[in-house]
């Protein structure tokens, strides 16, 4: 495999993990515009453990992920008192604050960035992304996922039917944060370098963009969205400076024609019926 292709597929793996970090809370109706902040927590925390304490990345990355999830719970409890646009803005502000904190944290290099000692190979990154996909597929088949959709659809009625709305919301938010932190930790160890500037608003925003583009009705949407977002600009590489403009124009037109995203429930049903009756 060429170095170029390997590089693109690694980026794809990171984008897939980020996509599911956004998708989980979105399944419960939360628009998280601060996912980059949680990636930063996972990246810096795991890098700090491997650098300063000599941990292996096999333990440091899960711990970084857990820490991001824990922050998700701690921050999620007050922040999830808000809804809708307020929640989107709160997470947006949160992402900004977290990356600004790391930018000023001299113990992890501040604005100069933070080199990381342990290395995660492309194969490790791919396996991790595949693991995240399998986990998400599993979750989407459980009652937990059903409850998330119920909360998204009608929180008042879900509550009256006995669903712990706050519990589900915090769980979805924190699990999304943990997935983001997991991706962030791998990112740090694959590129052997972290800088706070990478985890900016646009990273969060683009992730949300391709998740919605892929569609949030089914668990496959984020995967398709991430793949499209990663691979198509590469194909447009020939017209280098036009590619983001073309891509953005495409997204706008696509969403105008098909606001529910690329992969929808009815599409999946159609696909299944075809398979059963050839």
């Amino acid at each position: 495999m060429s170095g170029y292709l390997t590089g693109v597929l690694v980026v794809l793996a990171f984008n897939v993990m980020a996509a599911y970090a956004v998708y989980l809370p979105m399944a419960a109706g939360q628009l998280n515009l601060g996912i980059a902040g949680f990636m930063a927590i996972g990246a810096y925390a795991s890098a700090f453990l491997t650098n300063e304490y000599g941990w292996s990345m096999w333990t440091a990355i899960p711990l970084g992920s857990g820490l991001a999830g824990l922050m998700g719970i701690i921050i999620g409890i007050p922040v999830l008192r808000t809804h809708g646009i307020y929640l989107a803005m709160a997470t947006f502000a949160l992402g900004q604050v977290i990356s600004a904190v790391f930018l000023n944290l001299e113990v992890v290099g501040g604005a100069a960035g933070y080199p990381v000692s342990d290395y995660a190979s492309p194969q490790v990154v791919w396996a991790a992304a595949a693991g995240v996909v399998v986990l998400m597929l599993y979750i989407s088949r459980t009652r937990f996922a059903l409850c998330l959709t119920a909360v998204k659809s009608d929180a008042t009625v879900a509550d009256l039917l006995g669903v712990s709305v706050r519990g589900m919301q915090v769980a979805a938010f924190a699990l999304g944060a943990a997935v983001a932190g997991f991706g962030g930790g791998l990112y740090a160890h694959h590129y052997n370098f972290v800088e706070a500037q990478h985890f900016n608003v646009l990273l969060s925003v683009f992730t949300v963009l391709y998740v919605l583009f892929g569609g949030t009705q089914t668990v496959w949407g984020p995967l398709v969205g991430a793949a499209f977002f990663t691979l198509v600009p590469e194909l447009l590489r020939a017209s280098d400076q036009w590619r983001y403009a073309v891509f953005a124009a495409f997204i706008i037109l696509f969403m105008a024609v098909r606001p529910q995203g690329l992969v929808t429930t009815s599409l999946m049903t159609l696909f299944r019926r075809r398979r059963v009756t050839p």
Binding site: V208, L209, I251, P259
Partner: peptide, 24 residues
Amino acid sequence: LAYRRMQGGDPEVPLVSSLGFLVL
């Protein structure tokens, strides 16, 4: 393109389309 077509859909969608305009 971003507002009129999305009435009645999920509230995130027009937001994302408008972000698309920013990038464009």
